[in-house]
Design a protein around this nucleic acid. Structure first.
Length: 790
RNA sequence: GCUCGGAUGGCGAAAUGGGUAGACGCGAGGGACUUAAAAUCCCUUUCGGUAAAACCGAAUGCGGGUUCGAGUCCCGCUCCGAGCACCA
C-alpha cells in the first residue's frame, strides 16, 4: 500500500502483452506479405495440418514454430517473407471421425478449422492469414480437379483393375491406414482383397527423373535416402528361358539357376502346366487369388506347385523345371524369376521345402566357379559378360526396373473431391470440361460406406446421373473421390495466388514466389507427400504451366516430441495441450521452450518442469529492459560476449540449431546481469532482436518500450551485426598436455609461438612436475594447445 | 531380414576439417534478502580416492585399433527408435 515504487515497476504479463500484440499485428497487417510488390521474395512453407477435432497437437506447434523462427529470422535479414498456412481437411481421417461421433464432416470441419485458427493465432506465428486455404473449399478443390484433368490430358491418368482392402464383416473398402496387422481396425476381421476398376496416375514414368533430380536438392539426407529406396531402381536384365522372360539383377549366377518360378497370375502358367499337374495348379492359383493380402505378405513359409513343364536355361542348355509360387510377385519385374538357391535366401528356402537342387556358382572371393567360359570372372564383370552373350544370342536384354508403382488415386469414399469424369454410353469416358468445374461434392446424410464396394455417392442418382458434356445424352458421373495426397500435392502452388485474378496460379506471381525457398515438415511425409508433390510439379512443368520442375529447393524434417521419455498418446492421457501451457506460461515461453528441449531436427523430451527455466530467462529479459541504463559506460567484456552471441545465434538459426542459439542467449543474459549489475541499453537492445524470432510478442513489446514505437515492428528492424574485432582476444588460454593428459592451462599472447608457449608452460609447477625427462616430442597447435610427449 | 537414425551426469542435452568432455537448462544442496513464505540474486553439483580444499585416478553403450591426443576416425559387437518389408 505504501510501496511507492510499485507504480513504476511494470510486471511481465504474457497474456496481456500477447493479446495486445495479436490485435496490433492484425490492425497493422504486420504479417501480411505484399505479394506483388515484394522486392526480395522468400517463401517459407510449413506442412499444413489436418484440423482434427481434438485441436492443435503440440507436435504441430513444434513444427510450425520451428518454421516460423526461421521465417522471422529471414525477414529480419531484409527479405520479404511469405509464411502461409492452410488446412488439409479432406480425407479418410475426418470421415472416420465423423462416422464415429455421428457428426457430418461438412459441419465438423469448419468448427475444427475455427478452433485451429484460434490456437494457431495464439501461438504467435507470422502467418499471412489473408492467403489461407482449405482443401475442402470448392474454390480450392475445383483446381484439384483441374490438376486431375491436366494429368488426364497428358495421358498420365488411366483406369485399371486393382486390389482394394475389403472387410467382409463391415462390408466396406478400407484404406491402408485402417488395416492394422492384416485386420480391420474397427472389427478385427481379416481383411481380404477385392478387385475394382480404379484411377491411377502414371508416376512410374517419372521414376528416373524423380531419382536423378534428388542429387541437386538441398534436402535432409535421410529424406533423400527414403525417396531413393522408395523409387527402388535396380539395374539388371531380362533373360529368356524359352518363352518365359525372367528379371534378374544377378545374371552372373545363371549357371546356378536350377528352376524357374512364375507368379500365380502369370499368363504362361497354363502353357507350362502338364495334365497331371493341372488340378493342383488350379487349386493353388485359386487359393492364392482368394487368400488375403496379409497372409501372403507376412507368412514366411514358401508354398508352391510344380507345373510339370520345363524350360531351357539359355546359358547352360539344361532343362530345368517350372514352378508356381506366390513368393514371386506379378507386379514386379516380369512376374517370373530364375531361382538360384545357392545365392538367394528365398530361393534357398523354397528349394529346401521342395527338395530342389542347389548349385553353387560364386566363390567366397566373388569370382565365378562352375560357370563354363565365365568361370574365374568376377561377379561384376560376369554380370555384363553374361548379359552381353545372351543379348547376342537373342535371349536377353539389359533392363532397369523400379519398385515405384503407379499412384492409385481412387477412393470409394465420400469425403474428398469427386473425380471429374463422366461415363457416357455413346462417348465413353468423358472428362468434365474445365469451365464446368468444380464438380461439387453434394451434401448427403448417408455418407457411410456400404457393402456395394462403391462410393456412397453412387447411391445418389440425383447426383451421379448427368448429361454427357459431349453429346448431352444421360450419362453417369465417376463416383470415386480422389486421394487426399492429391489435395496436398499442389497446395503450395496455390497460396501466393489466393485472391489473384488468375487461377489456379497466377503466372507472374508464381514466377516470383516459386519454387518454395524453404519447406519444413515431418519425416512421416518424407516419401509419399513429397514425392507426389514433385511428380505433380514435373507434370505441370512439362505441360507448360510452370517454369520449374522441383517444388521445394530446401527441405528439412523436424523431429518428434515425446513427453517424460514416453510417446504421447490419447490412451496414455499424456498429450500436451498447447492451450493449457500458453495459459500458464504464455506463448513466448512455450515456443521458446519447445525449441530449447532438443535439436529441432531430432525432436525432444517435453518435461513439464523444464519450461520454468525458459520463463525465467524471458523474465530477466523483461527486467533488463525495465532497468536498462541509457547512459552508463559499456563494459568491454559484455561487448565481447554480445558480439560472440550475435555471431552464434546468427549461425545457429539458419541451421535450425535453435536449442544452442537459446543457450547462447541465456549465457549472454548471465553475463549481462551478473551480480547486481545494471545492464546498459545498448547491451539489451540487440538481445531483444535476437530473441524476437523465438518470443515474438515479448520482443515486440520490449522493442516498443525501448522507444521504437510508432508502428515500427521489431520484425522490420535489421538483424544486429557483430564486431569481428571484439571476437579476437589478445591473450588466450592455452591447454598444456603431458602424455595426452591435461596438466595445466596458461594465459598467453594469441600469436605466441611454440618456444614461448613451452617456456611459459614449464613455469607452471603442475606441468613441470610431469616433465621428468627431455620431451621426445612436442606438438603445438597455435591458439589451442601444447602437447608434450615424454 | 533390409535401410536410416541414435546411445554422453540424477534428467533434457552441449561439444565432431580429432585438440580443456558435460555449455545452457531442469532437479538437488547451500547462502543472501524476508517476521515468514513466494519471487529474486549468489555459490556448489560426472563418479571415486576423502567430510572439505589441494591433488590424483576413472569416465561419452561394449571389445579392439590408429594417434602425441578419440565422444568424434577404423574394425567387430550389444541395445533402443523409425521406416520398408518375399522387389529377384
Amino acid at each position: 500500500m505504501d510501496s511507492a515504487d510499485q507504480t513504476t515497476v511494470a510486471v511481465y504479463d504474457p497474456t496481456a502483452i500477447e493479446t495486445k500484440w495479436r490485435q496490433r499485428w492484425s490492425e497493422r497487417g504486420t504479417n501480411v506479405t505484399d505479394i506483388s510488390g515484394a522486392a526480395r521474395p522468400y517463401y517459407a512453407l510449413m506442412m499444413f495440418p489436418y484440423p482434427s477435432a481434438e485441436g492443435l497437437h503440440v507436435g504441430n506447434l513444434f513444427a510450425f514454430t520451428g518454421s516460423d523462427i526461421f521465417a522471422r529470422f529471414q525477414r529480419m535479414q531484409g527479405l520479404d517473407v511469405f509464411e502461409p498456412l492452410g488446412y488439409d481437411a479432406f480425407g479418410i481421417h475426418s470421415e472416420n471421425y465423423a462416422l464415429k461421433v455421428g457428426v457430418h464432416p461438412a459441419e465438423m470441419i469448419p468448427r475444427n478449422i475455427a478452433n485451429f485458427r484460434r490456437q494457431l493465432e495464439r501461438g504467435g506465428l507470422m502467418v499471412d492469414w489473408s492467403r489461407s486455404l482449405s482443401t475442402t473449399d470448392p474454390a480450392y478443390y475445383r483446381w484439384t480437379q483441374w490438376v486431375f484433368l491436366q494429368l488426364y490430358k497428358q495421358g498420365l491418368a488411366y483406369k485399371k483393375e486393382a486390389a482394394v482392402n475389403w472387410c467382409p464383416s463391415c462390408k466396406t473398402v478400407l484404406a491402408n491406414e485402417q488395416v492394422i496387422a492384416g485386420e480391420c481396425e474397427r472389427c478385427g476381421s481379416k481383411v481380404e482383397q477385392r478387385f475394382l476398376s480404379q484411377w491411377f496416375f502414371g508416376i512410374s514414368r517419372y521414376a528416373e527423373r524423380l531419382l536423378d533430380n534428388l542429387d541437386s536438392l538441398d534436402w535432409s539426407e535421410t529424406t533423400k535416402t527414403a525417396q531413393r529406396n522408395w523409387i527402388g531402381k535396380s539395374e539388371g536384365a531380362e533373360l529368356w528361358f524359352d518363352d518365359i522372360k525372367v528379371f534378374t539383377t544377378r545374371a552372373d549366377t545363371i549357371y546356378g539357376a536350377t528352376y524357374v518360378v512364375l507368379a500365380p497370375e502369370h499368363p504362361l502358367v497354363d502353357q507350362y502346366t502338364t495334365n497331371d499337374q493341372r488340378a493342383a495348379i488350379n487349386a493353388y492359383r485359386d487359393r492364392a487369388a482368394s487368400s488375403d493380402l496379409v497372409t501372403r505378405k507376412t507368412s514366411k513359409e514358401k508354398t508352391g506347385v510344380a507345373t510339370g513343364g520345363s524350360v531351357t536355361n539359355p546359358a547352360t542348355g539344361e532343362r530345368i523345371p517350372v514352378w508356381v509360387s506366390d513368393y514371386v510377385l506379378m507386379e514386379y519385374g516380369t512376374g517370373a524369376i530364375m531361382a538360384v538357391p545357392a545365392h538367394d535366401e528365398r530361393d534357398l528356402e523354397f528349394a529346401h521345402g521342395f527338395e530342389l537342387p542347389v548349385k553353387k556358382v560364386v566363390h567366397e572371393d566373388e569370382t565365378l566357379i562352375d560357370s563354363g567360359e565365365f568361370t574365374g570372372m568376377t561377379v561384376h564383370d560376369a554380370k555384363r559378360a553374361i548379359v552381353d552373350m545372351l543379348v547376342a544370342k537373342g535371349k536377353g536384354a539389359a533392363v532397369t526396373n523400379f519398385r515405384l508403382h503407379d499412384w492409385c488415386i481412387s477412393r470409394q469414399r465420400y469425403w474428398g473431391p469427386p473425380i471429374p469424369i463422366v461415363y457416357c454410353d455413346t462417348c465413353g469416358v468423358v472428362p468434365v470440361p474445365e469451365d464446368q468445374l468444380p464438380v461439387l461434392l453434394p451434401f448427403i446424410e448417408d455418407f457411410k460406406p456400404d457393402d456395394s464396394g462403391v462410393s456412397p455417392l453412387a447411391r445418389h442418382d440425383e447426383w451421379y446421373r448427368v448429361p454427357c458434356p459431349t453429346c448431352a445424352e444421360m450419362a453417369r458421373r465417376e463416383t470415386d473421390v480422389s486421394d487426399t495426397f492429391l489435395d496436398s500435392a499442389w497446395y503450395f502452388l496455390r497460396y501466393p495466388s489466393v485472391g489473384a485474378d488468375v487461377a489456379p496460379f497466377d503466372p507472374a506471381i508464381t514466377r516470383k514466389w516459386l519454387p518454395v525457398d524453404s519447406y519444413i515438415g515431418g519425416n512421416e511425409h518424407a516419401v509419399l507427400h513429397l514425392l507426389y508433390s514433385r511428380f505433380v510439379t514435373m507434370v505441370l512443368h512439362d505441360a507448360g504451366f510452370l517454369d520449374f520442375d522441383e517444388p521445394f529447393i530446401k527441405f528439412r524434417a523436424h523431429g518428434l516430441i515425446i513427453r517424460e521419455g514416453a510417446k504421447m498418446s490419447k490412451s496414455k492421457g499424456n498429450v500436451v495441450n498447447p492451450d493449457d501451457y500458453i495459459d500458464t506460461w504464455g506463448a513466448d515461453a512455450f515456443r521458446t521452450y519447445l525449441m530449447f528441449l532438443g535439436p529441432f531436427e531430432e525432436g525432444g523430451d517435453f518435461r513439464d518442469k523444464g519450461i520454468s527455466g525458459v520463463k525465467r530467462f524471458l523474465d530477466r529479459l523483461w527486467a533488463s529492459v525495465r532497468d536498462a541504463d541509457a547512459t552508463g559506460d559499456v563494459d568491454i567484456e559484455v561487448q565481447r560476449k554480445l558480439s560472440a552471441t550475435i555471431k552464434k545465434v546468427s549461425e545457429d538459426v539458419p541451421r535450425l540449431s535453435y536449442n544452442t542459439a537459446i543457450a547462447a542467449m541465456m549465457e549472454y543474459m548471465n553475463v549481462l546481469r551478473r551480480g547486481e549489475r545494471t545492464p546498459r541499453r545498448a547491451e539489451v537492445e540487440p538481445l531483444v532482436q535476437l530473441v524476437a524470432p523465438f518470443a515474438p510478442y515479448l520482443a515486440e513489446e520490449l522493442w516498443e518500450q525501448l522507444g521504437h514505437g510508432h508502428g515500427a515492428s521489431v520484425f522490420d528492424s535489421r538483424w544486429p551485426e557483430f564486431d569481428p574485432a571484439l571476437l579476437v582476444e589478445d591473450e588466450i588460454e592455452l591447454v598444456v598436455q603431458v602424455n595426452g593428459k591435461v596438466r595445466g592451462k596458461i594465459r598467453i599472447a594469441r600469436d605466441a609461438g611454440q618456444d614461448d608457449a613451452y617456456t611459459r608452460a614449464m613455469e607452471e609447477p603442475g606441468v613441470a612436475r610431469f616433465v621428468t625427462s627431455k620431451p621426445k616430442k612436442v606438438v603445438f597447435v597455435p591458439g589451442r594447445l601444447l602437447s608434450v610427449v615424454i
